[in-house]
Design a protein around this nucleic acid. Structure first.
Lengths: 207, 207
DNA sequence: TGACAAATCTAGTAACTTGTTTTATATTAT
DNA sequence: ATAATATAAAACAAGTTACTAGATTTGTCA
């Protein structure tokens, strides 16, 4: 949803055509190394925004070559954008993938958990090196925001590394425990708990 | 991709039908509060895995109720699974959404950046409280892995909170800088400006 | 006590949304 | 010729909403 809302935001700032939106988006994130937004995604997202009535075609310039369709945000789009600004971002479980690998390697015996930890650690160190290089190439006088973006990535990578150390330290303990399996839940209607008496609803009255 | 590979891993452990896979997946992550995998996603993922030849239908049981189609992993599926185990997890830009909101609020003036920071901070504290509660309800003697999973989430949330503080401390500085946005260029290859003479790269030498 | 309503679990399907990539095509400046 | 601008069609991938339908258990009322 971030691309969709970001395009909406950029159109709120100024009406633009597709390729211009892409350039602005990439510039906002400090280049293609940070977020390589494909041109095609801009156009698919734009057409979906137009279908939802959040943007509309304002004009189509044609000076010899292909048409440049300028898009503008609509009042409904501005409302949607405000909604996005006002709502917090919830965490996703993107981060759980390494955990899944570890647990499944223990469960299936198809891989060595220590090897997984090593591979992941090496990758995190490489990512940390790359982003630190980019961070140090960023001019704080011109692109302070992008510098802070890199800082966020660095902080996350450092947290991941510390977590890997924690896991490695307790891996033998985890090995001794069985893989968490589903507990058979009680079937059927749950018994009435005294704590939570049902409110007698008028709608429940029999005809 | 994690759901896809996790289902593959669970099938490597044991052949199962769709609903059983869902239960095992949810149990592995410590309940629906941590990852509420929708049944529909299991079945769509399974059919894509079957189409790719990574799993196959082993049998269809019917005991009174609806049919239970048992899936099994294929040799190609085992190979794919090993590949997943061996490759590191790369960071995604899921985390950049708050950054986008901040930069766009500054660019468009459609929202107050301080308000965004406040909202996000409140949400992070709530998430931190929730996961800490779940963590403390986890028995380390039985579910050490799930405890470590919660620790990972906590470490990420704490990093996010520290980052918000960093940003807030420098928000006035960021405000003074223009939003990084490229000029809309004319179509075709941009002309070489006299101000910015191209560095003669060896690669550019005409053959 | 027996019929029945209520609640929940099991198992799966259909349709849709969103994100992203692939591929194709045309234009224009150097 | 090549590199950059500019757009579109088609398709794939991931995930959600909403739904069907039977099975199981409990509560309630006549």
């Amino acid at each position: 949803m971030s691309v969709r809302n970001a395009l909406l935001g950029l159109l709120a700032q100024k009406s633009r055509h597709g390729y211009e939106l892409r350039s602005a988006f990439v510039a906002m994130l400090g280049g293609e190394a940070n977020w390589d937004l494909k041109p095609a995604q801009v156009y698919t997202t734009l057409s979906r925004l137009a279908e939802a009535g959040l943007v509309k075609q304002q004009a189509t310039l044609q000076s010899g070559g292909p048409e440049k369709t300028i898009y503008a945000i609509t009042p409904a789009g501005k409302k949607e954008l405000r909604k996005w600004f006002e709502s917090p971002v919830e965490a996703s479980h993107q981060q759980d993938e390494v955990y899944l690998k570890l647990v499944l390697s223990l469960a299936t015996g198809n891989a060595d958990p220590y090897h997984i930890l090593q591979t992941q650690r090496a990758s995190l160190y490489r990512q940390l090196h790359d982003v630190t290089t980019r961070r140090n190439d960023t001019d704080p006088e011109r692109d302070l925001a992008i510098l802070l973006l890199h800082d966020q990535t660095i902080m996350h990578l450092e947290a991941d590394l510390r977590w890997l150390d924690m896991v490695e330290g307790r891996l033998d303990e985890i090995r001794k425990q069985p893989v968490p399996s589903p507990l058979s839940r009680t079937r059927g209607r749950p018994p009435n708990s005294a704590k939570d008496p049902p409110i007698s609803l008028p709608e429940r009255v029999k005809k």
